[in-house]
Simulated scan of single mutants.
Amino acid sequence: ARIDLNLLVHLDVLLREQNVTKAANHLGITQPAMSNGLKRLRNLFNDPLLVRTSDGMAPTELALTLKPQVREILSKVERVVQPERSFDLQSERVFRIMASDYAESTLIPEVLSEVRRQAPLVTLDVLTPSDVSFEDVEQGRVDMAINRFDTLPQSFHSKTIWGDSFSCLMSPENPVLENFDLDAYKGASHIWVSKTGFGVGVGINPQDVQRLGWVDEALNKIGGKRNIRVFTRHYQVAMLLAQQPDLIATLPTRAANLKSESAKLVVKTPPFEIPDFELKMAWSPLLQHNAGHKWLRGVIAEVSEKMR
């Protein structure tokens, strides 16, 4: 009886914004009212919850533990008090999707076709991984992230879109085609291409095998190393560069197969085993029960199932 459950709403927004003024603006209350709410929360939990640092307000260990629990509680309350609504297919909503170059090349064209068929006034704003941070997705500023992820925040929801293997793309004039074995692969010149996760990328050190990714880690395990001559973060660029007569691009098979009918390129199976990977979509718990977002997730799931 002594607990004001509205304080959980305050706590949810405070932990998301980590700023009293922004949290107050989000809830449409004054800063003193939000400061008073934070004071009451601190008394309730006997913990400062947010402490001031040189980088702004930072959550305490208890606050980090509470964050997903409070969000789950409020999500359940929202489901109880808000009736189920269907998405208006005449909506002019803009959905912002962060997609890797790989996903943008293979999945997004089919998704766009289905979106336009079902909801012709909807707009897709496709962003690159360098445009987006985990915080953007967590706070719902970006509706969806589609990529290969090494890790995701515990609070995120995610779904596997499909699994994929790797293939080699090269010119039909490449001399390694005469006997495309492991020795030929190691002796050739290569194009490295990758961009996973979020945020601005950094320069690559060719000697740092751990950061080069799946292909080079797999080759390293059998005592091999690629002779990488060019690094790119764009699969379409890698495909163009692979037309040169002495370069090999080792790409996800779905991306390589986009060029399977080109007279300028040949698709080959790598002469060693590279573990498959998963393409996933991830989104914020804030959007889990949003009618429009549920529709978009359904479209992506339906399209990817057909493509599988």
Rank of each mutant, 00 (worst) to 15 (best):
I73Y: 06
I73T: 13
L74H: 06
L74S: 07
S75E: 12
S75M: 04
K76S: 11
K76R: 12
E78L: 04
E78W: 01
V80L: 09
V81G: 05
R85E: 14
R85F: 01
S86F: 03
F87I: 10
F87S: 00
D88Y: 01
E92H: 11
E92C: 09
V94E: 10
V94W: 00
I97G: 10
I97C: 06
M98S: 12
A99C: 08
A99W: 02
S100Q: 04
Y102H: 14
Y102L: 13
Y102E: 12
A103T: 15
A103I: 14
A103W: 01
E104K: 15
S105T: 15
T106M: 03
L107H: 06
I108F: 02
I108E: 08
P109L: 02
P109I: 05
P109K: 03
E114D: 10
R116I: 10
R117H: 12
Q118A: 09
Q118T: 11
Q118E: 14
A119S: 13
V122G: 09
L124T: 13
L124W: 04
L124K: 07
T128W: 00
D131E: 08
V132R: 01
S133I: 06
F134I: 15
F134A: 13
E135F: 01
E135V: 13
E135A: 11
E138G: 09
G140C: 06
R141A: 12
I146P: 13
I146C: 04
I146W: 01
I146H: 05
I146E: 05
N147V: 09
R148Q: 13
R148L: 09
R148Y: 07
F149D: 14
F149L: 08
F149A: 09
F149V: 12
D150T: 14
T151E: 12
S155I: 12
F156N: 02
F156T: 06
H157Y: 08
H157M: 05
H157D: 12
S158E: 11
K159W: 02
K159T: 11
T160E: 11
I161L: 15
W162L: 09
W162H: 14
G163N: 11
D164E: 15
S165G: 13
F166H: 13
F166N: 08
S167F: 01
C168I: 08
C168N: 10
M170D: 06
M170G: 07
S171N: 05
S171T: 00
P172D: 00
P172A: 00
P172H: 00
P175H: 05
L177G: 12
E178Q: 15
E178R: 14
N179P: 05
F180W: 10
F180R: 01
F180P: 02
F180A: 03
F180H: 02
D181K: 06
D181F: 04
L182A: 10
D183I: 06
D183Y: 02
D183M: 07
K186Y: 03
G187D: 08
A188H: 03
S189T: 10
H190W: 01
H190C: 10
H190D: 04
W192S: 09
W192F: 14
K195P: 03
K195S: 13
K195N: 14
G197P: 01
G199V: 00
G203T: 12
G203R: 03
I204F: 02
I204A: 05
P206A: 07
Q207T: 15
D208F: 03
D208P: 10
D208E: 14
V209M: 05
Q210F: 05
R211D: 14
G213F: 00
G213W: 01
V215H: 04
D216I: 08
E217C: 11
E217V: 15
L219R: 03
N220W: 08
